[in-house]
Simulated scan of single mutants.
Amino acid sequence: MSTTETSALAVQAATSATGRRFSPLASAKLKQNLRWTSWAPAVITFVIAAALWQITAIANPYVIPTIDQVWMSLIKDADTYWANMLVTSLEVVVGASSGILAGFILAIIMAEFQIMERAIMPLVVVVMVTPIVAIAPALVVAFGFGMTPKFIVTALVVFFPMLVNSLAGLRDVDDRALDVMKTLHASRWEIFRDLRFTGSMPYVFAGLRIALPLAIVGAAVAEFVAAGQQAGLGSLVTIAAAQANLPVTWASIALLCLMGVILISLLALVRERVLWWSDGAAVGR
Score class of each variant (00 low, 15 high):
140 V>H: 02
167 L>R: 12
148 T>F: 10
3 T>N: 09
92 V>R: 07
232 G>V: 02
86 L>W: 12
227 A>I: 09
88 T>K: 01
265 S>R: 07
67 I>W: 07
206 A>F: 05
237 V>P: 09
139 L>V: 01
238 T>N: 14
64 I>S: 03
15 T>N: 06
169 G>V: 14
135 I>C: 01
225 V>W: 13
27 S>N: 14
10 A>H: 10
271 R>E: 13
203 Y>K: 00
76 K>V: 15
56 T>D: 12
144 G>P: 00
157 V>W: 12
255 L>N: 07
135 I>V: 07
52 L>I: 14
155 A>F: 05
108 I>Y: 02
94 V>M: 01
103 G>K: 07
180 V>S: 04
46 F>I: 14
262 I>V: 14
21 R>G: 10
231 A>I: 07
26 A>S: 12
118 R>P: 14
194 D>K: 14
73 S>H: 07
182 K>P: 05
262 I>M: 08
274 V>F: 06
132 I>D: 00
91 E>I: 04
49 A>Q: 05
180 V>W: 05
238 T>K: 15
106 L>M: 05
70 V>W: 07
245 N>M: 02
212 L>A: 13
253 I>D: 11
170 L>H: 12
22 F>A: 04
256 L>F: 03
102 A>T: 09
234 G>T: 10
43 V>I: 09
16 S>V: 12
204 V>T: 09
20 R>W: 14
57 A>W: 12
281 A>M: 15
239 I>F: 15
6 T>V: 15
112 E>N: 11
180 V>A: 04
64 I>A: 03
57 A>R: 11
262 I>Y: 05
213 P>V: 06
155 A>K: 06
148 T>A: 09
266 L>T: 05
20 R>N: 15
111 A>C: 03
156 L>N: 05
44 I>W: 03
91 E>K: 05
232 G>W: 01
25 L>Q: 13
142 A>F: 14
57 A>E: 07
129 V>M: 01
202 P>H: 04
183 T>Q: 08
210 I>G: 04
1 M>V: 12
179 D>V: 08
138 A>I: 15
108 I>N: 02
85 M>N: 15
142 A>Y: 13
160 F>T: 11
185 H>F: 10
65 P>A: 08
141 V>C: 06
155 A>E: 01
199 G>I: 10
248 V>Y: 10
1 M>D: 04
231 A>V: 10
54 Q>W: 10
92 V>G: 07
